[in-house]
């Protein structure tokens, strides 16, 4: 299962208004580490379907979202809870490290 993409037009409904926490993976085609972390996030998503939603934002296609959330390094993963950023993880990490960072949302 691959995480679905959200865009500037769907971000509000799919992320900010979501009843569940949503992890947004800010990425781009040209970012090697993003390609490495993407399948790991897909795994975490499929193992935690009832706890955490995971979506992707392509920063090339959605520069305003990247600017609004002050992205200066990707992959950048932000967990949104009730419309607010509850956690930020920057850089590709192994699965166990990501799970540890996200423990509060996966419990």
């Amino acid at each position: 299962m691959s995480a679905r993409s959200v865009s500037e037009s769907t971000f509000d409904a799919e992320v900010l208004q979501s009843a569940r926490p949503v992890l947004v993976d800010f990425w781009a085609e040209w970012c090697g580490p993003c390609r490495m972390v993407s399948p790991i996030l897909d795994q975490i998503a499929s193992e935690n379907v009832d706890k955490l939603d995971i979506v992707k934002v392509n920063v090339d296609e959605n520069p305003n979202l990247a600017m609004q959330y002050q992205i200066t390094s990707i992959p950048a993963m932000k967990v949104f809870k009730s419309g607010e950023v509850a956690q930020t993880i920057i850089g590709a990490k192994p699965k166990a490290a990501l799970e540890a960072d996200l423990a509060a949302f996966l419990a």
Partner: peptide
């Protein structure tokens, strides 16, 4: 940053 190709865009 330690990676211009990753982050230069921003």
């Amino acid at each position: 940053s330690w990676c211009a190709t990753c982050d230069g865009f921003f």
